[in-house]
Amino acid sequence: MLENFWFNVEYGINHVLDINAYDHVLFLISLTVPYAFKDWKRVLLLVSMFTLGHTLSLVLAAYNIVSINVQLVEFLIPVTILIVAVYNVLTAGKGAQKERVGILFFTTLFFGLIHGLGFAREFKMLLGDSDNTLVLLLEFALGIEISQIIIVFMVLFLGYLGQTIFRFSKRDWILVISSVVIGLVIPMLHNSDFLS
């Protein structure tokens, strides 16, 4: 039982930290880069909203409530990353990350739904004929949350180093990192089967 639990949690961790599927990491970088350690509650809430969206779409797919066009979802995932990164560039230094919960959290939840649909097919294969769908989903979601917290911590830590040791202004840090993300995500859009 414990062996299965760890397998499923580890599967969730590896899903996010897979170097060949770095879209999840790029989204988390874009989501986190405008913040500092002192904003940890807000960042944790944002990341949890993303996990919730991701998990909800897996539930909907696992119980065959929704069916997905894989090419469309694989196109929409980089679009979500691009939207967040461009938003960062446009609002860098303007304190936009301090705004009330509102649209940012709902957008993150919605983007989580899209990212979860991107993994639904693989998750169904992991699920197989298991009758413990909900337990498997929760264990998998726990693994995702753990890996996301690791990534968020690394982004916040690198931001701290960049802004204290290397004297980047917060605005410049957001602009540079978000621009790098945009540069990485544009080829993903270009290579999408949806546009072919």
Rank of each mutant, 00 (worst) to 15 (best):
M1W: 11
E3N: 11
N4W: 03
W6R: 02
F7T: 11
V9F: 07
V9G: 14
Y11I: 13
G12N: 04
H15N: 08
L17P: 04
I19C: 03
Y22N: 13
H24Y: 09
V25L: 13
L26S: 05
L26F: 13
L28H: 02
S30W: 02
S30K: 00
L31T: 10
T32M: 02
T32R: 00
P34N: 06
Y35N: 03
K38R: 13
K38Q: 09
K38N: 09
D39M: 01
D39V: 01
L45T: 15
V47W: 12
S48N: 10
M49Y: 12
M49E: 12
G53S: 03
G53Q: 03
T55R: 00
L56K: 00
L58A: 11
A62Y: 06
A62F: 08
N64I: 02
N64R: 08
I65Q: 07
S67M: 15
I68C: 03
Q71K: 08
Q71C: 13
Q71H: 13
L72P: 01
L72F: 05
V73A: 07
E74Q: 07
E74F: 15
F75M: 08
F75D: 12
L76P: 06
L76D: 12
V79C: 13
V79N: 10
V84W: 00
V84A: 04
V86A: 03
V86Q: 08
Y87A: 01
Y87V: 06
N88T: 14
L90K: 06
A92H: 08
K94H: 10
K94L: 08
Q97T: 07
E99L: 14
V101Y: 12
G102V: 14
I103N: 10
L104M: 08
F105W: 11
F105M: 14
T107R: 02
T107I: 07
T107P: 12
T108C: 07
F110V: 12
F111I: 06
L113C: 09
I114W: 05
G116V: 04
G118S: 08
R121T: 15
R121I: 09
F123V: 14
F123E: 13
K124W: 03
K124T: 14
M125H: 06
M125P: 00
L126Y: 15
L127Y: 01
G128I: 03
S130H: 11
D131Q: 13
N132Q: 05
N132I: 10
T133M: 12
T133E: 11
V135P: 02
V135I: 09
L138T: 12
L142C: 12
G143Y: 10
E145A: 01
I146S: 07
I146V: 14
I146H: 02
I149R: 05
V152T: 09
V155S: 06
F157K: 14
L158P: 00
L161K: 04
G162I: 05
Q163Y: 06
F166Y: 14
R167A: 15
F168M: 09
F168V: 12
F168R: 11
S169H: 02
K170A: 15
K170L: 09
R171Y: 05
I174N: 09
I174G: 02
V180S: 09
V181T: 10
V181A: 10
M188Q: 11
L189K: 00
S192E: 08
S192R: 00
